[in-house]
């Protein structure tokens, strides 16, 4: 009885892990890096997280959860609310519907898929921001953030998200 409860509690806690990680990514994205050159180009870890969980564990990261994470990010970093939500929900949707092509393939395929998604997210974010603020925003920080995202993806996935994903799938 007790072990059954513990098991269930363990599974419950594990299922919260993707959401918790995304929260952490949002906060890390807002924290000041204070590094020269990349002060405005903190890697958009949230997009990596959303893409990854959409492919490997979509049930643990529902659309409304992604929506709320995006909203939190917008409010925290000062973007028009709803902007990140729209972009992240779209990324999750596309990644979910293409997961059968990507999951189970080599890491290179996974990465290539992410490069396309990150590019789409960057362009969409920029276009939506320009539209909402009715002014042409600088492209350089957007390009820098995109480059940071695709460079951070391999180490974050191979040493961070893959091991966590293994723990999560072991509990099933």
């Amino acid at each position: 009885m007790m072990t059954d409860f513990r098991q269930r509690a363990g599974v419950g806690l594990k299922s919260l892990l993707p959401g918790f990680l995304l929260l952490l990514f949002v906060f890390m994205g807002a924290a000041p890096l204070r590094l020269p050159w990349i002060e405005n180009a903190a890697p958009p870890l949230v997009i990596i997280g959303v893409y990854y969980w959409a492919i490997f564990q979509p049930d643990l990261m529902p659309g409304w959860g992604v929506f709320l994470i995006g909203l939190l990010q917008d409010l925290l970093i000062g973007l028009p609310p709803g902007l990140s939500s729209a972009v992240l929900v779209l990324i999750r949707w596309i990644a979910c519907s293409h997961r059968r092509f990507v999951a189970g393939q080599s890491f290179l395929v996974l990465w290539t898929g992410f490069v396309i998604m990150a590019l789409l997210a960057a362009v969409l974010e920029w276009a939506l921001f320009c539209l909402l603020e009715w002014r042409l925003a600088a492209l350089l920080p957007v390009a820098l953030r995109f480059l940071m995202a695709i460079m951070v993806f391999p180490p974050l996935v191979l040493w961070g998200l893959h091991p966590i994903g293994r723990v999560l799938s072991a509990g099933e």
Binding site: G63, W64, P80, L83, W93
Partner: peptide, 19 residues
């Protein structure tokens, strides 16, 4: 999933307009 995603994106657009 597709329906829910579309709904959420619509909600996000409404939020942007509200903002």
């Amino acid at each position: 999933t597709r329906f829910a995603s579309l709904l959420l994106i619509l909600l996000a657009i409404m939020l942007m307009v509200l903002g």
